[in-house]
Simulated assay, not measured.
Amino acid sequence: MSAVLKPEASLRPMLAADLDAICRIEPTIFPYPWTRGNFDDSLKSGYSCWVYEHAGEVLGYAVLMMVLDEAHLLNISIAAPWQGKGYGRSLLAHVMDIARGHGALNMFLEVRPSNQAALGLYESMGFNEMAIRRGYYPAPNGREDAVLMGVAL
């Protein structure tokens, strides 16, 4: 009897060809998703954009903007069927390493206070609450605050 190894998930730079898959995932996990134009602009601007894939299927992605010695995580997402399996943690660790490699001393991000899973992940990776950005996100009842979080790299 021989064992058949399953392909591992892998990280790679995002390509324009990935945008269809990304734009299918984004609205399934966010009530106010990024548009194709947001992702396209991020690629064209030279942001550090990454895709997590498994057997040719995009299961997650991240967009990181570098400004001098600071990194700002603009988007990090794992498709719903793949959440809770450690892929988000792995993707976050990867972009933190990328930021360090580009000389970032700190990384920042905003997160909805209602996104308890994301808050837990960020805190477990060393991020701390720094401030509240009032009315930062659109919400069904108007606006929702954002928690600004940061970590020293």
Rank of each mutant, 00 (worst) to 15 (best):
Met1Pro: 14
Ser2Ile: 06
Glu8Leu: 10
Leu11Val: 09
Pro13Tyr: 13
Met14Cys: 13
Leu15Asp: 11
Ile25Cys: 10
Arg36Lys: 13
Gly37Glu: 15
Phe39Gln: 00
Phe39Glu: 02
Lys44Trp: 06
Ser45Arg: 10
Gly46His: 01
Gly46Met: 09
Val51Cys: 12
Tyr52Cys: 15
Glu53Arg: 00
Gly56Val: 07
Gly56Met: 09
Glu57Arg: 05
Leu59Met: 10
Val67Glu: 13
Glu70Leu: 03
Glu70Gln: 06
Ala71Thr: 08
Ala71His: 02
Ala71Pro: 10
His72Glu: 14
His72Tyr: 12
Leu73His: 02
Ala80Glu: 12
Gln83Cys: 11
Gly84Ala: 11
Lys85Cys: 15
Tyr87His: 13
Tyr87Asp: 07
Tyr87Ala: 14
Ser90Cys: 12
Leu92Gly: 06
Ala93Asp: 08
Val95Asn: 00
Met96Gln: 00
Asp97Asn: 12
Ala99Ser: 05
Arg100Gly: 13
His102Asp: 09
Leu109Lys: 02
Arg112Val: 09
Ser114Ala: 13
Gln116Ile: 15
Ala118Glu: 02
Tyr122Gly: 05
Ser124Phe: 11
Met125Ala: 14
Gly126Pro: 12
Phe127Met: 10
Met130Leu: 15
Arg134Val: 06
Tyr136Met: 13
Tyr137Arg: 01
Ala139Gly: 04
Ala139Cys: 06
Pro140Gln: 06
Pro140Thr: 00
Asn141Glu: 15
Glu144Val: 04
Ala146Thr: 00
Leu148Asp: 02
